[in-house]
Amino acid sequence: MKIQEVIVVEGRDDTAKLKQAVNADTIETNGSAVKTSVINQIRHAQTKRGVIIFTDPDYPGSRIRHIVANAVDGCKHAFLQQDDARAKNENGKSIGIEHASPAALRQALQNVYTLTEDEPVSITRDDLIAEGLIGTPEAARRRERLGALLHIGHTNGKQLLKRLSMFRISKHQFNQAMNRVRQEEDNERKTNSNT
């Protein structure tokens, strides 16, 4: 799979892992204190080929994504689910692109989004409350599953509404994904009650 855009990653281990999955060029931020020279490289890449930000699904990765997206307009975003990025050893504590399978990396890169804030918000905070995505004991698990289904990454309650809006997730897409979440929960309950 050939990727036209330059992919922004955190480090050389991420670059090495991506090269196993796709044919692509990368720019490495080398940590969460993204240097001005790296931002300038990313800006140049954005004007010439486009950029996909593909950082680890953890707090430092989210911070880097935010820094780059604020500095460089029009970047695309790819998200890897935490379960796909969890190390198979070390008790699964380490999370990063370097731990993901080539298939998971390709899947994430096939579902990129471009940030936008031009669209009116069609999904409201009341919708999130009604669907149990905030304010319930199951909210974190439901948000994680919704993020996986919509390919928008893991979010906390505060970030979810913003990310749904920025990635232009329609009410229809949201409802379809939530129907699937509920269906999976029902199937899980039935399985647990039969055991």
Rank of each mutant, 00 (worst) to 15 (best):
G50Q: 03
G50H: 00
I52E: 07
I52N: 00
I52T: 14
I53G: 01
F54R: 01
P57V: 04
P57Q: 00
D58A: 02
Y59Q: 10
Y59S: 13
P60E: 04
G61R: 07
S62C: 07
S62N: 14
S62G: 15
R63H: 12
I64H: 08
I64T: 14
R65D: 11
R65V: 02
H66G: 07
H66N: 03
V68F: 08
A69E: 02
N70H: 09
A71L: 13
A71E: 13
D73W: 00
C75P: 01
K76C: 05
K76N: 04
H77T: 11
H77A: 10
A78D: 09
F79G: 06
F79E: 07
F79L: 03
L80F: 12
Q81C: 03
Q82T: 14
Q82K: 15
D83E: 04
R86H: 11
A87D: 15
A87R: 09
K88G: 15
E90W: 11
G92S: 12
K93H: 13
I97Y: 09
I97S: 11
I97A: 13
H99M: 09
H99T: 11
A100H: 12
A103V: 08
A104N: 04
R106C: 14
R106T: 15
Q107E: 12
A108C: 10
L109N: 10
Q110H: 05
Q110N: 01
Q110S: 14
Y113V: 11
L115G: 08
L115W: 01
T116P: 07
T116N: 10
E117N: 10
D118G: 10
E119M: 09
P120L: 13
S122L: 06
I123M: 10
R125K: 07
R125S: 13
D126F: 06
D127E: 08
D127P: 06
L128E: 04
I129M: 13
E131N: 12
G132H: 07
L133I: 06
I134Y: 01
I134C: 05
P137V: 06
P137I: 15
P137N: 02
A139G: 08
A139W: 01
R142F: 00
R143S: 08
E144H: 03
L146V: 04
G147I: 09
G147A: 05
A148E: 13
L149E: 04
L149H: 03
L149C: 12
H151Q: 04
H151I: 04
H151G: 11
I152H: 07
G153E: 00
G153Y: 00
G153W: 02
H154A: 07
H154N: 07
T155F: 03
N156I: 02
N156T: 03
G157H: 05
Q159L: 05
Q159W: 01
L161G: 00
K162C: 09
K162N: 01
L164A: 02
L164D: 01
L164T: 05
L164W: 00
S165C: 02
M166A: 09
F167A: 00
F167L: 00
R168Q: 14
R168I: 05
S170L: 12
Q173R: 14
F174L: 12
A177I: 06
M178N: 13
M178S: 10
N179I: 09
Q183M: 09
E185V: 05
E185N: 15
D186H: 15
D186S: 14
D186W: 04
